[in-house]
Measured scan of single mutants.
Amino acid sequence: TGIVNVSSSLNVRSSASTSSKVIGSLSGNTKVTIVGEEGAFYKIEYKGSHGYVAKEYI
């Protein structure tokens, strides 16, 4: 489990790349469930599926 550490919002992406499609966003202080790691990204549970967020903001 981690907490989103941004002042505005954090993009949730379809894969572990900054060039991948943005599938949603999370507000600061949102609790997320981390299910894996891939490079500079965490794989998280997101809306019944999975998404990826940059580690530096969790």
Score class of each variant (00 low, 15 high):
residue 1 T to P: 09
residue 1 T to I: 14
residue 1 T to V: 15
residue 1 T to H: 13
residue 1 T to D: 09
residue 1 T to K: 07
residue 1 T to E: 13
residue 1 T to Y: 13
residue 1 T to W: 14
residue 2 G to I: 08
residue 2 G to R: 04
residue 2 G to F: 07
residue 2 G to S: 05
residue 2 G to W: 08
residue 2 G to A: 08
residue 2 G to E: 04
residue 3 I to N: 06
residue 3 I to C: 09
residue 3 I to T: 11
residue 3 I to D: 04
residue 3 I to M: 10
residue 3 I to L: 10
residue 3 I to Y: 14
residue 4 V to T: 08
residue 4 V to E: 03
residue 4 V to A: 05
residue 4 V to L: 06
residue 4 V to N: 03
residue 4 V to D: 03
residue 4 V to G: 05
residue 4 V to I: 09
residue 5 N to H: 09
residue 5 N to E: 07
residue 5 N to F: 06
residue 5 N to C: 10
residue 5 N to Y: 06
residue 5 N to A: 10
residue 6 V to A: 12
residue 6 V to G: 13
residue 6 V to W: 06
residue 6 V to D: 06
residue 6 V to Y: 06
residue 6 V to P: 08
residue 7 S to V: 13
residue 7 S to P: 12
residue 7 S to G: 13
residue 7 S to Y: 07
residue 7 S to W: 08
residue 8 S to H: 15
residue 8 S to G: 15
residue 8 S to L: 09
residue 8 S to T: 15
residue 8 S to Q: 14
residue 8 S to A: 12
residue 8 S to R: 11
residue 8 S to P: 12
residue 8 S to Y: 14
residue 9 S to T: 13
residue 9 S to H: 15
residue 9 S to D: 11
residue 10 L to V: 15
residue 10 L to I: 15
residue 10 L to S: 05
residue 11 N to H: 15
residue 11 N to M: 14
residue 11 N to I: 15
residue 11 N to A: 14
residue 12 V to K: 00
residue 12 V to L: 03
residue 12 V to W: 01
residue 12 V to I: 08
residue 12 V to C: 02
residue 12 V to Q: 00
residue 12 V to S: 00
residue 12 V to Y: 02
residue 12 V to A: 01
residue 12 V to G: 00
residue 13 R to W: 15
residue 13 R to V: 14
residue 13 R to P: 01
residue 13 R to M: 15
residue 13 R to L: 15
residue 13 R to F: 15
residue 13 R to S: 09
residue 13 R to I: 08
residue 14 S to F: 15
residue 14 S to E: 15
residue 14 S to T: 09
residue 15 S to R: 11
residue 15 S to V: 06
residue 15 S to C: 09
residue 15 S to I: 06
residue 15 S to F: 10
residue 15 S to D: 11
residue 16 A to S: 07
residue 16 A to L: 04
residue 16 A to W: 04
residue 16 A to M: 04
residue 17 S to E: 07
residue 17 S to C: 08
residue 17 S to W: 05
residue 17 S to Q: 08
residue 17 S to Y: 07
residue 17 S to L: 08
residue 17 S to M: 07
residue 18 T to A: 10
residue 18 T to S: 11
residue 18 T to W: 14
residue 18 T to Q: 11
residue 19 S to R: 09
residue 19 S to M: 12
residue 19 S to V: 13
residue 19 S to W: 10
residue 19 S to D: 15
residue 19 S to H: 08
residue 19 S to I: 09
residue 19 S to K: 14
residue 20 S to D: 04
residue 20 S to Q: 02
residue 20 S to V: 03
residue 20 S to L: 01
residue 20 S to A: 15
residue 20 S to M: 03
residue 20 S to N: 03
residue 20 S to C: 05
residue 21 K to E: 12
residue 21 K to N: 12
residue 21 K to V: 13
residue 21 K to D: 14
residue 21 K to W: 09
residue 21 K to F: 09
residue 21 K to H: 12
residue 21 K to C: 08
residue 22 V to T: 07
residue 22 V to M: 06
residue 23 I to G: 01
residue 23 I to W: 03
residue 23 I to L: 10
residue 23 I to Q: 03
residue 23 I to A: 02
residue 23 I to S: 02
residue 23 I to M: 07
residue 24 G to T: 03
residue 24 G to R: 01
residue 24 G to W: 05
residue 24 G to F: 08
residue 24 G to S: 03
residue 24 G to N: 02
residue 24 G to K: 02
residue 24 G to L: 04
residue 24 G to A: 04
residue 25 S to T: 14
residue 25 S to W: 13
residue 25 S to P: 04
residue 25 S to M: 15
residue 25 S to N: 11
residue 25 S to E: 12
residue 25 S to Q: 15
residue 25 S to F: 15
residue 26 L to A: 02
residue 26 L to F: 03
residue 26 L to V: 10
residue 26 L to H: 02
residue 26 L to T: 02
residue 26 L to K: 01
residue 26 L to Q: 02
residue 27 S to T: 12
residue 27 S to L: 15
residue 28 G to V: 12
residue 28 G to W: 13
residue 28 G to R: 13
residue 28 G to I: 11
residue 28 G to C: 08
residue 28 G to A: 14
residue 28 G to M: 12
residue 28 G to H: 12
residue 29 N to Q: 12
residue 29 N to K: 10
residue 29 N to C: 10
residue 29 N to V: 06
residue 29 N to A: 11
residue 29 N to I: 06
residue 29 N to R: 07
residue 29 N to G: 14
residue 30 T to I: 08
residue 30 T to C: 08
residue 30 T to F: 07
residue 30 T to W: 06
residue 30 T to L: 07
residue 30 T to P: 03
residue 31 K to G: 06
residue 31 K to R: 13
residue 31 K to P: 11
residue 31 K to W: 13
residue 31 K to L: 13
residue 31 K to Q: 13
residue 32 V to K: 00
residue 32 V to F: 04
residue 32 V to R: 00
residue 32 V to L: 05
residue 32 V to G: 00
residue 32 V to E: 00
residue 33 T to K: 12
residue 33 T to G: 04
residue 33 T to F: 11
residue 33 T to D: 07
residue 33 T to C: 09
residue 34 I to N: 00
residue 34 I to S: 01
residue 34 I to G: 00
residue 34 I to K: 01
residue 34 I to P: 01
residue 34 I to L: 06
residue 35 V to F: 07
residue 35 V to R: 05
residue 35 V to P: 00
residue 35 V to W: 07
residue 35 V to C: 07
residue 35 V to M: 10
residue 35 V to Q: 06
residue 35 V to A: 05
residue 35 V to Y: 07
residue 36 G to Y: 04
residue 36 G to D: 08
residue 36 G to H: 05
residue 36 G to V: 03
residue 36 G to I: 03
residue 37 E to F: 07
residue 37 E to N: 06
residue 37 E to S: 11
residue 37 E to V: 10
residue 37 E to M: 10
residue 37 E to R: 06
residue 38 E to F: 09
residue 38 E to Q: 09
residue 38 E to G: 03
residue 38 E to T: 08
residue 38 E to I: 10
residue 39 G to K: 06
residue 39 G to Y: 05
residue 39 G to A: 07
residue 39 G to N: 08
residue 39 G to W: 04
residue 39 G to T: 03
residue 40 A to H: 11
residue 40 A to G: 14
residue 40 A to L: 13
residue 40 A to R: 10
residue 40 A to D: 15
residue 41 F to M: 04
residue 41 F to C: 04
residue 41 F to K: 01
residue 41 F to Y: 11
residue 41 F to I: 01
residue 41 F to P: 00
residue 41 F to W: 14
residue 42 Y to W: 12
residue 42 Y to D: 01
residue 42 Y to L: 06
residue 42 Y to R: 01
residue 42 Y to A: 02
residue 42 Y to G: 00
residue 42 Y to H: 03
residue 43 K to L: 10
residue 43 K to S: 04
residue 43 K to F: 05
residue 43 K to Y: 05
residue 43 K to Q: 07
residue 43 K to G: 02
residue 44 I to E: 00
residue 44 I to A: 00
residue 44 I to M: 01
residue 44 I to K: 00
residue 44 I to D: 00
residue 44 I to W: 00
residue 45 E to H: 08
residue 45 E to L: 14
residue 45 E to A: 10
residue 45 E to N: 08
residue 45 E to V: 15
residue 45 E to S: 08
residue 46 Y to N: 01
residue 46 Y to W: 14
residue 46 Y to R: 00
residue 46 Y to E: 01
residue 46 Y to T: 02
residue 46 Y to Q: 01
residue 46 Y to A: 01
residue 47 K to C: 09
residue 47 K to T: 04
residue 47 K to W: 07
residue 47 K to Q: 13
residue 47 K to N: 11
residue 47 K to R: 13
residue 47 K to V: 06
residue 47 K to Y: 10
residue 48 G to N: 10
residue 48 G to W: 06
residue 48 G to M: 07
residue 48 G to V: 04
residue 48 G to E: 10
residue 48 G to I: 04
residue 48 G to F: 06
residue 49 S to Q: 14
residue 49 S to K: 12
residue 49 S to I: 10
residue 49 S to F: 10
residue 49 S to E: 11
residue 49 S to R: 11
residue 49 S to D: 09
residue 50 H to C: 08
residue 50 H to N: 07
residue 50 H to Y: 15
residue 50 H to M: 10
residue 51 G to Q: 02
residue 51 G to C: 02
residue 51 G to T: 01
residue 51 G to R: 02
residue 51 G to S: 02
residue 51 G to E: 01
residue 52 Y to R: 00
residue 52 Y to K: 00
residue 52 Y to S: 01
residue 52 Y to T: 00
residue 52 Y to N: 00
residue 53 V to P: 00
residue 53 V to F: 01
residue 53 V to G: 02
residue 53 V to Q: 00
residue 53 V to R: 01
residue 53 V to N: 00
residue 53 V to M: 02
residue 54 A to S: 10
residue 54 A to F: 09
residue 54 A to G: 09
residue 54 A to V: 10
residue 54 A to I: 13
residue 54 A to L: 15
residue 54 A to N: 12
residue 54 A to K: 09
residue 54 A to Q: 15
residue 55 K to E: 02
residue 55 K to S: 05
residue 55 K to C: 04
residue 55 K to Y: 02
residue 55 K to Q: 05
residue 55 K to M: 08
residue 56 E to Y: 09
residue 56 E to V: 11
residue 56 E to C: 08
residue 56 E to P: 06
residue 56 E to A: 11
residue 56 E to W: 08
residue 57 Y to N: 09
residue 57 Y to P: 03
residue 57 Y to M: 10
residue 57 Y to L: 09
residue 57 Y to T: 06
residue 57 Y to R: 05
residue 57 Y to H: 12
residue 57 Y to E: 09
residue 58 I to K: 02
residue 58 I to L: 06
residue 58 I to A: 02
residue 58 I to C: 03
